[in-house]
Write a protein that binds this DNA or RNA. Structure first.
Length: 423
RNA sequence: GACCCCAUCGUCUAGCCUGGUCAGGACACGAGCUUUUCAAGCUCGCAGCACGGGUUCAAAUCCCGUUGGGGUCGCCA
């Protein structure tokens, strides 16, 4: 049975690049009916923080990357100590002060990478490896090898930045007489300019994407496309179909530049096809955080969601679009006001407000009928009045259809804003 | 610098393994349609095999080199 693992270190938030490593491991396990193990590499007692651990776990769950087994290296120090002692007694390692160091033999190491093929390294490039540090804690490579072997990992899938670690770790496997697993080194995710992914280029933590209003499905979909393709010209890929064709061997070798535009596009696609009720549910916490007093339970809220569903790239966009609904201080966009809200429309506004006031059953349909009869009566083009009215009602020149906007705003506020527009 | 990895439109990629289909799709960009605006949607378009040598009847595909990019050189992980 396939056993793979994701081994984050709780010294920072879950990075978007690490999330992809986790995802590919998870997909291998799920595609082949294997096990996905989550192992926390918290051997650095100083830099490891509980808040980071919690954030990592939270982000993993949010992305849907569920694990079958869970370990923490800080619980396993006795085991590492024991194996270090074994190597010491066998003469394969020596003490340097309180540290334990592996003797590196002269030889050439052949590493077979599932993605890259054969990689050969001469150990003259490798110096003796510290296994246990002076403070009694294991080094990364030592704990990693002991755990991967004891936890019976069949394949180690990690970032390309570990390629140079692998030959060193193979030496440890050999010294311990452990079976060496398969390896697959994933290409790195680069920033949009092709450089190293850093905060400068945009969000790096998965949790940041969450607060920005990205859907986990969109992120997972985007991430799986970075270095892999279903091969059928499809971009929007469901996990179920991806699992049918996913193979770590088909992953690309070259690094992939991260594209925020494409992620946004995918996110907008997922938002569009989301059930309105579910979208409303996802939006409620965001809206409630900004407008604590707003009533988000009624059908009105779902109508708003429906209205802006097709215009959002991220959930947070909803907040930008709907400010005019949740606050009465309509913040006029200066350009929109200059272009459409001029004093000479005052008369038309008054007529419209008056006619609208006479409507009993106020909705998009009746608002439109009223509006059309008003412009017909005034002998003007609909467009002449539409744009100024939109600015008066929403503060901006762009948005959904005017009559839907009126309906969402309601009769009273629509009329009030028409009157306030020029007074 | 040494060692290792990589190289198809601006970006993500299909094609490469098993040479021979106008190098296909998507994001972005441009144009048009639609339209009360902006988006969306639909249609069309722009744009690529890094370079140089081989091998071969034939090279994006195989080999070598150059250039370029990335990674690693910690008692961090």
């Amino acid at each position: 049975m396939v056993r793979v693992r994701f081994a984050p270190s709780p010294t920072g938030f879950l990075h978007i690049g690490s999330a992809r490593t986790a995802l590919f491991n998870w997909m291998v396990a799920r595609a082949q009916g294997g096990k996905f193990i989550l192992r926390i590499e918290d051997t650095d007692q100083v830099r490891s923080k509980t808040e980071f651990l919690e954030e990592i776990l939270e982000s993993m769950k949010w992305l849907g990357l569920t694990w079958d087994e869970y370990y923490k290296q800080s619980d396993r120090f006795d085991i590492y100590r024991q194996y270090a002692g074994k190597l010491l007694s066998e003469g394969k390692a020596y003490q340097d002060g309180a540290a334990v160091v592996l003797k590196v033999p002269q030889k050439s190491i052949k590493l077979y990478d599932l993605i890259r093929g054969e990689i050969v390294v001469d150990t003259k490039e490798i110096k003796d490896q510290v296994l246990m540090k002076s403070d009694g804690s294991p080094t990364y490579s030592f704990a990693c090898v002991v755990d991967d072997a004891l936890m019976e990992m069949t394949c180690i899938i990690r970032g390309e930045d570990h390629i140079s670690n692998t030959p060193k770790q193979m030496l440890i496997y050999e010294a311990l007489d452990f079976k060496i697993p398969k390896f697959a080194h994933l290409p790195l995710i680069l920033d949009p300019e092709g450089g190293r992914m850093s905060k400068r280029a945009g969000a790096t933590a998965v949790s940041e994407y969450r607060t920005q209003g990205f859907l986990p499905q969109a992120i997972v979909n985007y991430l799986m496309l970075l270095g892999w393709s279903p091969g059928n010209n499809q971009e929007k890929v469901s996990m179920a179909s991806a699992l049918k064709t996913f193979s770590i061997k088909k992953v690309n070798k070259a690094g992939a530049a991260f594209s925020f535009e494409k992620l946004q596009w995918l996110n907008s696609q997922y938002i569009r096809e989301m059930d309105t009720a579910r979208l409303a549910e996802a939006l409620r916490p965001l809206v409630a955080a900004r407008y604590p007093q707003a009533d988000l339970q009624g059908a009105d809220f779902e109508r708003m969601v429906q209205l802006y569903k097709g215009r959002m790239n991220t959930l947070a966009d909803f907040l930008d679009w709907t400010d005019y609904i949740f606050t009465d201080l309509v913040p006029f966009d200066p350009e929109a006001k200059a272009a459409h809200l001029t004093r000479d429309m005052g008369k038309e506004f008054d007529v419209l407000a008056q006619q609208l006031g006479a409507v009993d059953d106020f909705n998009a349909k009746t608002a439109e009928e009223t509006f059309r009869s008003v412009v017909a009566g005034l002998g003007i083009e609909a467009g002449t009045l539409v744009h100024p009215v939109r600015v008066a009602l929403t503060g901006r020149a762009v948005g959904p259809g005017l009559f839907d906007t009126m309906a969402v705003l309601g009769k009273e506020r629509t009329i009030r804003r028409l009157k306030e527009g020029f007074h």
